[in-house]
Design a protein around this nucleic acid. Structure first.
Length: 111
DNA sequence: TGAATGACTCGTC
DNA sequence: CGACGAGCCATTC
């Protein structure tokens, strides 16, 4: 896919450190398209087809809710993976979201 | 080409 | 604090 937009999303998503999560808006913002947060979510759908695979489970909405968990093969996989990486998840939402939140804008350098 | 859709976000009630 | 509505943008039919 020459959809560079998605590629950028994957790039950011892949940069998400283990045990950390980020929001669609944050990724979109890092791409310079803060308003295209929805596209980030759509890109995540392609994540399964993308390679290397993208840790879509580390991407949640601005509230830390696992909005896209139902899109996983087993909807519970997302939460499972996050917990496995050390991210506490309760009621489909990330616990201490602010603490585990990973801001791409601060980590990524456009140098 | 116009209309519909979505793993979002924000402001109001 | 929870529910509702409108805005935004790229992709698809």
């Amino acid at each position: 896919m020459d959809t560079n937009f998605y590629e950028q999303v994957y790039e950011i998503a892949r940069l998400i450190p283990k045990g950390r999560v980020t929001s669609y808006g944050a990724i979109a913002k890092s791409l310079g398209a803060a308003k295209s947060s929805r596209m980030v979510g759509h890109a995540m759908l392609y994540a399964g087809s993308a390679y290397p695979k993208v840790p879509a489970h580390r991407v949640v909405n601005s509230s830390g809710l696992l909005t896209g968990k139902f899109h996983f093969k087993p909807p519970e996989l997302m939460e499972k993976l996050l917990r496995k990486e050390g991210v506490e998840v309760n009621n489909d939402k990330v616990v201490n979201f602010k603490k585990v939140f990973w801001n791409p804008l601060e980590e990524i350098n456009l140098d």
